[in-house]
C-alpha cells in the first residue's frame, strides 16, 4: 500500500491533470467567493496550502494510531487547530485581508480539499509523500484561484492588486468595466469556462456521460 511516489510528480500532478478544483471537484466554495480581487485570492491560496500540507503531514504521522470509526473527528480537530493558527497569524499581520476573507478562513476547516486529501492520500502514505502531496494540491488550488481572480479583477474593476492597468484612453473611447464580473454568479461561469478550455486542451479529462 505504501507505493513509491515520484516526489516531483506529487507536486506537479495536481497543477493540471489532477487539479483539485477542476478535476477532483473539491474546495469549490471558497474558490468562488474570494476571487473578486487578486490579493485575497493569493492569501487564501497560501493559507490553504499551509493547512493542507501540515494536516497531511500530521495525520500521516499518526495514521497508524487512529481508530477508523472516529477518524473524521480526529482529522477535523487537527485541521481546526491548524486553521486557528492561520487565522490568528492573519489577524496579527494582515488584518485588512483577514477582514476581507471574513468567514472563509474558518471555512478552510470544511474545505473539501483538506478532508479529501487526508482521506485519499495521507491515511495511506508516508509523511514526506503526504506533505508534498499537500503542497501540490495547495498549489493546484492556488493556481485556479489566481487565474480566476486575475480575470475577475481585470475585467471587473480594471485593476490588478488595486493598481490601475486599463489605460485611461480606453475609458475615454467608451470602454466600461464589466460590473457583472464582480458578482458571485460570474465566478461560477468563469470557472465553467476555465474547465471548458482546460478540457478542450486535454481531451483525456473529458467526462464520459
Amino acid at each position: 500500500m505504501a507505493k513509491k511516489h515520484k516526489w516531483l510528480d506529487l507536486v506537479t500532478d495536481p497543477l493540471n491533470e489532477n487539479n483539485p478544483i477542476t478535476v477532483q471537484i473539491l474546495g469549490i466554495c471558497s474558490a468562488l467567493a474570494i476571487t473578486v480581487k487578486l490579493m485575497p485570492a493569493i492569501v487564501m491560496a497560501l493559507s490553504v496550502m499551509v493547512v493542507v500540507a501540515f494536516s497531511n503531514l500530521i495525520i500521516s504521522l499518526i495514521r497508524n494510531y487512529i481508530p477508523t470509526r472516529i477518524r473524521i473527528i480526529i482529522q477535523l480537530l487537527v485541521v481546526a487547530a491548524l486553521v486557528i493558527l492561520v487565522d490568528q497569524i492573519l489577524r496579527a499581520f494582515a488584518y485588512d485581508v483577514s477582514k476581507q476573507l471574513s468567514v472563509f478562513v474558518g471555512l478552510i476547516i470544511t474545505n473539501c480539499i483538506v478532508m479529501g486529501r487526508l482521506e485519499a492520500f495521507a491515511m495511506g502514505n508516508k509523511p514526506l509523500d503526504s506533505f508534498l502531496d499537500g503542497i501540490g494540491n495547495g498549489a493546484g488550488y492556488g493556481l485556479v484561484l489566481i487565474i480566476v481572480a486575475f480575470f475577475r479583477e481585470l475585467l471587473g474593476s480594471g485593476t490588478l492588486f488595486d493598481h490601475k492597468v486599463v489605460p485611461q484612453w480606453l475609458y475615454d473611447h467608451g470602454y466600461v468595466n464589466n460590473a457583472m464580473m464582480l458578482l458571485p454568479a460570474m465566478a461560477l461561469i468563469t470557472l465553467g469556462i476555465y474547465i471548458w478550455v482546460q478540457r478542450a486542451l486535454y481531451p483525456e479529462l473529458t467526462e464520459k456521460n
Binding site: 477542476t22 471537484i25 454568479a185 460570474m186 465566478a187 461560477l188 461561469i189 470557472l191 465553467g192 469556462i193 474547465i195 471548458w196 478550455v197 482546460q198 478540457r199 478542450a200 481531451p203 473529458t206 467526462e207 456521460n209
Partner: peptide, 15 residues
C-alpha cells in the same frame, strides 16, 4: 464534449 459533466453544471449554477 469538453463541457459535459461538471463544466455545464457550473454554468447552469451561474445562470
Amino acid at each position: 464534449k469538453p463541457l459535459r459533466g461538471i463544466g455545464i453544471t457550473f454554468i447552469v449554477t451561474g445562470l
